[in-house]
């Protein structure tokens, strides 16, 4: 039903130019079911997130007996006390900082390393280049689970276990195949003449890379950076495996989940803080995000 209506609407849009008001009203009314349906579904999609937000604003005494919707009839119940207490909670604040350091490190490092490699794959001739590129991209197949056990043992013997560096390096390595793939495909689209000119002028490859390729590659790098940042910020599996005291926010919340209901006044605001940053990043860079998504559906 809905598809037919939407395609009807498409026909109507074509006719929209110069039609009388009555026709326009009829057209609007015929679309009303679609509008209502979308409004309903849109609200439905928001309810879970709003539920968490409202829960995080209610004192535990209220939450013991009723749900977050109490706030809709009595907005005065809302309080920032839960947030105040998690920001006084040393474990949570240090978890937020840990998350930030891991995410920044594991975004900058792989992008730097990957763009160097991508440049080589795109513009430096060496034997076996295409073959090697295929191998690197082929590593996309390897699930993180394949590396957990050996790296766990390796980190234990190297002293990298439970360190920010250990987490950053792991995320960096697993971010590389996709980053190299994406950037190489972008770099190869840079006009050859620009590079030839620079080479004839005697610029070194490193200089070309930093002065020419990186600035031109910025759109692709931006998409990649946003994705990698969100990926690492949102990670649970890697941090849960290689961290004990070094806890990002996801692990810190996870460790409270055993008593979900009893700890709700801590879990709800902390979870909201953990998803607020990705939401800000997402809304600020929505365009890059969607572009990256369309480019990266192969990951």
């Amino acid at each position: 039903m809905s598809t037919a209506e939407a395609t009807d609407a498409r026909v109507e849009t074509r006719a929209a130019v110069g039609e009388p008001l009555s026709a326009r009203i009829v057209r609007f009314l015929s679309r009303t079911p679609v509008y209502l349906f979308l409004a309903f579904v849109g609200l439905l999609w928001l309810v879970p997130t709003l539920g968490l937000l409202f829960t995080s604003l209610l004192p535990a005494s209220i939450l013991n007996t009723t749900g977050w919707w109490e706030i809709l009839s009595e907005p005065s119940l809302a309080t920032f006390d839960n947030y105040r207490s998690i920001f006084d909670n040393q474990a949570i604040t240090s978890a937020v900082w840990t998350t930030l350091w891991i995410s920044l490190g594991a975004t900058i490092l792989p992008i730097l390393v990957a763009s160097l490699a991508a440049y080589a794959f795109a513009w430096i001739e060496f034997p076996g280049r295409d073959w090697l590129f295929l191998v690197v991209v082929g590593l996309l197949v390897v699930p993180i689970q394949m590396a957990l056990i050996p790296i766990f043992s390796l980190y234990n013997s190297l002293g990298l276990f439970d360190t920010i560096a250990g987490l950053v390096l792991f995320h960096t390595a697993f971010g590389l195949p996709f980053a190299i793939f994406l950037l190489r495909n972008f770099f190869i689209g840079i006009p050859k003449d620009l590079l030839e000119a620079a080479r004839i002028d005697g610029a070194s490859e490193l200089r070309i890379f930093f002065r020419l390729i990186l600035p031109l590659g910025l759109p692709a790098i931006a998409s990649l950076a946003i994705f990698q940042f969100l990926w690492v910020w949102n990670d649970l599996l890697v941090a849960l495996t290689f961290g004990r005291e070094t806890q990002p926010i996801t692990v810190a919340i996870f460790s409270q989940m055993r008593q979900f209901s009893a700890n709700i006044e801590l879990i709800a605001p902390a979870a909201f803080v953990s998803l607020a940053i990705p939401l800000v990043v997402f809304f600020a860079f929505q365009r890059y995000f969607v572009q990256g998504l369309l480019a990266g559906s192969v990951k």
Binding site: T49, N234, A271, S274, L275, V281, L293
Partner: peptide, 11 residues
Amino acid sequence: MAISLFAAGVI
């Protein structure tokens, strides 16, 4: 999509 699957789990 921007939220972690973990946070979605909490939600």
